[in-house]
Design a binder for these strands. Structure first.
Lengths: 355, 355
DNA sequence: CCCGTCGATGTAATCGATTCCACGAGCGCT
DNA sequence: AGCGCTCGTGGAATCGATTACATCGACGGG
């Protein structure tokens, strides 16, 4: 592979001049420029990004460590991250942690060794020493979706509280009273938050969330199946199962179906994280949709800000409820089954939260 | 960030010794080794992969350019590729071409500039000059799933012919005679091959594939919708629509449903590329499943072979039919609705292919 | 006409590793 | 005792770029 020296020789100039042409530095004669360009062309020369990075201490590369590539939510995130990064002149290297802290560390270490300019992470756990060190050491970093509290790292995420409240209103309005949740890992912020938001919203409606109705999942389909089976085995099974992510919802659907039961007639189902496939499942699944694309773009912008020396702020965007049919027919003969809707039912007045 | 010099200073040895310790070269005294290791530890030193790559001319990195990250088939492929690569000591950088040749070139160029050790590609088109040049220039390369003929590059793919024949047998057995296909882009091998395989299999059963029943798609959901609408507008619409990939099948499902028609009662649907979600759609979709994980692993092994100077062979694995309910109830009261089944119906004898 | 300035260019240092080569110490063998 | 090995080590070249600094010629103003 041709190097800058070969180009210099071919064009009859020094490597400095070649470099200047390539980085369009102003003081190069038109003559030299054309000769260099011709040499570049004829040799098919391409600058070696490795050498360039070594010298400039910049890789123009962002690392993105996500918890699970097979989860459509994260692939959409990855896609929007790459798009925005490309628009800003960065490449992205994706690391898939598969919800495993050790794999997450592997990728973080790998990315750090490659001297990426900045790191975007959706942490699988409460924070490995490695990541905390990196943050402290000043690696430009931004958390996306999930985060680790107490580190001075901006967080780009969506707030599901309002949407969860809407969901509970929806469930309440349909007459459901015994509701259960398949929680995510307690080590993740999203795992804890979603349970909290759900519990609070239920409280407004005078409903409780007994321990027996809180199943511990790990954001993977299999755990959704297992937890749901547990629910169905209860003396008094819940009327609704709310899965804290889309894959667990799928597992839940499997479990329900394996018993010969039907959604929503025998048990209702809702999920956090909407995905295109939910429109096509049987029945279409009511879900809380995050503005995934926006999150990815905002995260990249925040990271680019940090890298380029600007502040780089946290961003929180609202999620919204998308009502479909998995909790029961929402409203008689709804003409548009796949759109966000405001809850039609108010909580009992005495429980209504002030303001 | 600490460099090898800092470590050398801290340990009171030369950089050469530090390097030897790090690459566990035999001739280092036990004493020096422990001092170096202590220095590494106390400084939190990590070798700079950029510098190392420049010197050794190896990045231990594979590039993977896929046509569409949002397609579950490719994300599964990406996942298995990364896993196998990791097991073999390589990292993977994924580039998403989004079925756009220009984006594909962007990523290939980017990866080449980064001096990746080898390239795994599932080409979106017939082959850009860029990629052909790279292949000719001797970049270790392997095609996965799709390929470009005439370049001396190994191909790892699955052969759908037998499975397509099984599908046609299945359709024929259910009484379907007017069958249509939503084809992929003619520029891709898979786009062309699947149509060919389908046509040949139909022929064995004495069925034709008229032009009106061949719709031109682009492997994206939207095109599936559009083509299906065209089919439904025909004076004599087909009884079956076979989509050449999963996303187009989804689009087709949308289109059918938008007309108030039902699958499989009004029109049957089948797809190439099975994905977990097909179990959960309404109805579950009959599909041809590729051994995706195996393909990814085999591709990485072939590429590693090439990189490390071994031959690196092409691999072709069989796909298989997974019968579900989208083409009609397959067999009365099938106890196991989600498994591969041999076709129960033979073609009319006079058309049966010899051997 | 001379000198300062500016534009174009080349020389060489540098980034952080790896690795060839030389050197000195220690040891065994004759 | 002297020769030749091996072993451990350091010095320095090298990979392919960028860039500070030096140089040189041309040009314009006083």
């Amino acid at each position: 592979m041709a190097s800058i020296k070969d180009v210099a020789a071919e064009a009859g100039v020094s490597v400095a001049t070649v470099s200047r042409v390539l980085n369009d530095h102003p003081s190069v004669s038109a003559d030299a420029r054309t000769r260099v360009l011709a040499a570049v062309e004829s040799l098919g020369y391409r600058p070696n990004a490795v050498a360039r990075s070594l010298r400039t201490d910049q890789t123009h590369t962002l690392g993105l460590v996500i918890s699970d590539v097979m989860n459509p939510y994260f692939t959409e995130l990855a896609r929007s991250v790459e798009e925005e990064a490309r628009a800003l002149g960065y490449s992205v290297i994706i690391g898939n942690a598969d919800e495993r802290p050790d794999l997450q560390d592997h990728h973080v270490r790998n990315l750090l060794d490659r001297r990426i300019d900045g790191l975007l992470v959706s942490p699988t756990d409460g924070g490995s020493p490695l990541m905390l060190d990196a943050a402290r050491a000043g690696t430009p970093m931004v958390f996306v979706d999930r985060w680790i509290p107490g580190v001075g790292v901006p967080v780009v995420r969506s707030d599901g509280r309002a949407a969860v409240r809407d969901l509970v209103a929806h469930l309440y309005g349909l007459g459901h009273r015994r509701v259960a949740i398949i929680a995510g890992p307690a080590a993740t912020t999203t795992g804890r938050e979603r349970v909290e938001a759900f519990r609070e919203a239920l409280q407004e409606y005078g409903l409780g969330l007994p321990d027996a109705y809180i199943g511990q999942g790990d954001f993977q389909a299999e755990s959704g199946r297992r937890v749901t089976e547990g629910f169905l085995d209860l003396a008094e099974p819940p009327e609704v199962v709310f899965a804290a992510d889309n894959l667990m919802a799928l597992g839940a659907l499997d479990a329900v179906r394996a018993r010969g039961l039907r959604v929503p007639d025998d048990i209702a189902l809702a999920a956090f994280d909407d995905i295109p496939w939910f429109v096509h499942t049987d029945p279409p699944i009511t879900a809380i949709a995050q503005p995934t694309g926006e999150l990815g773009r905002a995260a990249v912008r925040a990271l680019a800000d940090r890298i380029e020396g600007r502040p780089g702020e946290s961003v929180t965007l609202p999620a919204r409820l998308v009502v479909r049919r998995s909790c029961g027919e929402p409203y008689p003969a709804s003409p548009e089954p796949d759109s966000a809707q405001a809850p039609a039912v108010q909580p009992p007045a005495e429980n209504r939260s002030h303001r």
